[in-house]
Computed example of a mutant assay.
Amino acid sequence: MRERRGDSVFDHISKKTNVKQDDLFQLVQSLQGADFKDEKTVRNVIREVARMAGKRVPKEKEDELVQAITNQNIPMDFASLNKWFQSK
């Protein structure tokens, strides 16, 4: 596997979710330029991430995530995201 900047973050996510790093990189690349103010786009992303991780996201949690993301009430850098998710 080629060396990537920030591999430790993706390695950590991969281990916690059982999602391959290459799949994570593909997801990240597919999100570049995505409109995170668009509810439909955000819902599709949440569902894709849940599918990849083999997890079910309850409707209430999906609504909460959509609201936070579309209103830009969620941090978008890895360090802040990590802290945000640990506090939930």
Rank of each mutant, 00 (worst) to 15 (best):
G33Q: 10
V28S: 09
I69W: 03
D77R: 01
L81E: 05
S14W: 11
S14R: 14
R47H: 01
I46P: 06
S80G: 15
S80M: 11
E60D: 14
D77V: 03
V66Y: 04
N18W: 00
N18C: 02
R4S: 04
T41Y: 03
T17R: 11
D11A: 08
D11Y: 05
G33M: 11
E62G: 04
N71E: 13
S14D: 14
N44S: 14
Q29C: 10
D22K: 13
G54A: 06
L24S: 13
D38L: 08
F36D: 08
D38E: 15
G6C: 10
A68R: 13
V49H: 03
A79Q: 07
S80P: 09
R4E: 07
K61D: 14
S87L: 13
F36S: 06
L31Y: 02
I46M: 06
K20M: 08
I13S: 12
S14V: 01
G33P: 11
V9D: 05
K88Q: 15
P58G: 08
I13K: 12
E48N: 03
S14L: 14
T70E: 10
D11G: 05
N44K: 14
E62P: 09
F85T: 06
S87K: 15
N71P: 04
V57G: 04
A34N: 05
G33E: 04
R51Q: 11
K20H: 13
N18D: 10
K61Q: 14
W84E: 05
D23K: 04
A79G: 03
D7I: 11
A68C: 06
K55S: 04
S87V: 10
Q26F: 10
V19R: 04
S30A: 15
V49N: 00
Q29H: 12
T17P: 08
N73W: 07
G6S: 11
K20N: 12
E48T: 01
Q67V: 03
F78Q: 07
Q72T: 07
F25Q: 08
